[in-house]
Nucleic acid binder design. Structure first.
Length: 462
RNA sequence: GGCUGGGUAGCAAAGCGGUUAUGCAGGGGCCUGCAAAGCCUUACAGACCGGUUCGACUCCGGUCCCAGCCUCCA
């Protein structure tokens, strides 16, 4: 039984799909005006893990993750860079796709762009106008009237009185209420714009997600997710727009991913304390970044540091070391999967609100079993190693050859290393341990670690 | 000020009203020419103060501290 923490009710709930034959999930993706940072990476990886699990649990899952490609920040950045908006957004969409691949993130079933959804956006705004929930201000902008939607605040646990009491003085007199938000913005000179019944303009932030999710998944769907900072106002406003326009329950389960922190502080653009994915990929493989992300629960804060990234690398090395040189038939693997409870426990962990730390701990138990059986029962060790690799695949790790992971990124070529190993083994045969240790130390300086065994000497990067 | 979360061993990170989380690091041992890897073994927790209970890290109340949202943010 799958249980998911629902922000709407602030508790874990049994997941009851609207239609078990077709699970529907929408995640708010990037606004594409810059490279993905680790916070974006976390959302991408977390929902990748979630969707992988849903796909094993249900026959058909439709996963939609949008791209917001029109927005003030995009316009400003394009102006600053002296490039067209199209060039800018295309560049960062491509970069995002590269980062995703490095992180082992599978493609969503649909990846709609806001600029391709203008018709749906206009249609939705018209519905809101007809129902009297939206109005056009004196400046021409179209606003959503929060007082005309009864459920406003139900997701973020806010109520309008408190919000107004705490809100900063807003001098914008075009709005009836300071909390009203823009649905359609009248274009200024040289801004991209589309025709609309209210004048040339562009969509406000929030409406594109209501329009795209409805377009791809219908008025009512199962799961909607994003970073925790989207709870308010973005998701609150989406509910107001969609339920206001459609007169229908919008989303059953709202999921929010915790922040990536640096020194106990949220990583964010405004604090300028962010690290981009591609920056980190210079020093760490995408799989290490991915492991780092799944090593904590998705709702907990994730403290970003080199130390913690190194921990992730060490942990992953242990798992790869366990499966190194082992393989078994599917039949043998299926047999051990039945005989032991690792797979059941692994799935149970993921069923409990996608508890990846517990799932990982089971992988380590399995690794220990593999290692201890290597001498005792080699066939069993092989089969268990295969199972370990399969379970890793459920969360998108352990899928490259162990040697590739263990040897990647060394300064010396494999042939040079092999030559050194041969020299060392000759020295060892002559009992010249001073020389053999010297060669080993020399390689260690290059980040190469030697391991002697009965089958000979192997190496891996430190 | 209002509303959310959270404070777990040296570090990271979970579950759980009573039984080993897990990984790294540490101690002891096996293995090794010595290492590395691996195995066995061991120590180290639950911010503070009360309460409930036969028994609380786990439930309840209070105190302190931290983070986040209330403005663009994943």
């Amino acid at each position: 039984m799958l249980r998911i923490y629902n922000t709407l009710n602030r508790q874990k709930e049994e997941f009851h799909p609207i239609n078990p034959d077709k699970i529907t999930i929408y995640v708010c993706g990037m606004t594409v005006y810059d490279y993905c940072h680790m916070g974006h990476a976390r959302v991408l990886v977390v929902f990748d893990v979630i969707v992988r699990h849903l796909r094993r649990r249900f026959p058909n899952v439709k996963y939609v993750r949008n791209i917001t490609d029109i927005d003030d920040k995009i316009i400003n950045r394009a102006l600053k860079n002296k490039e067209s908006i199209n060039d800018l957004t295309k560049r960062f969409i491509d970069a995002m796709h590269e980062d995703e691949r490095a992180l082992g993130v599978l493609k969503p079933d649909a990846e709609p762009k806001a600029t391709d959804a203008i018709d749906q956006i206009l249609y939705m705004i018209e519905s809101l106008m007809e129902k009297g929930i939206a109005y056009q201000g004196k400046n021409g902008d179209v606003y959503y009237s929060v007082h005309d939607f009864a459920g406003y605040g139900k997701l973020s646990g806010k109520n309008l009185d408190e919000l107004e009491a705490g809100s900063r003085v807003d001098i914008e007199t075009d709005k009836k209420n300071p909390l009203d938000f823009v649905l359609w913005k009248i274009a200024k000179a040289n801004e991209p714009s589309w025709q609309s019944p209210w004048g040339e303009g562009r969509p406000g932030w929030h409406i594109e997600c209501s329009a795209m999710s409805t377009q791809h998944l219908g008025n009512h769907f199962d799961i909607h997710g994003g970073g925790m900072d989207l709870t308010f106002p973005h998701h609150e406003n989406e509910i107001a727009q969609s339920e206001g326009a459609n007169g229908h329950a919008f989303v059953n389960t709202w999921m929010h991913v915790g922040f990536v922190n640096i020194n106990e502080e949220k990583m964010s653009k405004s604090l300028n304390n962010f690290f981009t994915v591609r920056e980190m990929l210079k020093d760490y493989s995408g799989e290490v970044l991915r492991y780092f992300i799944v090593s904590s629960h998705y709702r907990s804060p994730l403290n970003f540091s080199k130390t913690n990234l190194n921990h992730a690398k060490t942990s992953l090395t242990r798992l790869y070391t366990a499966i190194r040189g082992l393989s078994a038939s599917k039949a043998a693997m299926d047999e051990v999967s039945q005989r032991f409870d690792y797979e059941v426990r692994f799935n149970t962990a993921l069923d409990d609100d996608f508890n990846t730390p517990i799932a990982l701990s089971i992988l380590f138990e399995l690794a220990k079993m593999v290692n201890s059986q290597r001498q005792q029962d080699f066939d069993l060790a092989n089969a268990l190693a295969q199972l370990l690799k399969k379970l890793g695949g459920y969360i998108g790790i352990l899928q490259v050859e162990a040697d590739m992971f263990l040897k990647q990124g060394t300064a010396l070529s494999a042939t040079d290393i092999d030559e050194k190993i041969k020299q060392r083994n000759d020295a060892k045969d002559d009992k010249n341990f001073i020389l053999s240790d010297q060669i080993r130390d020399e390689l260690y300086e290059f980040g190469i670690l030697l391991e002697d065994s009965v089958d000979g000497t192997t190496w891996r990067r430190k």
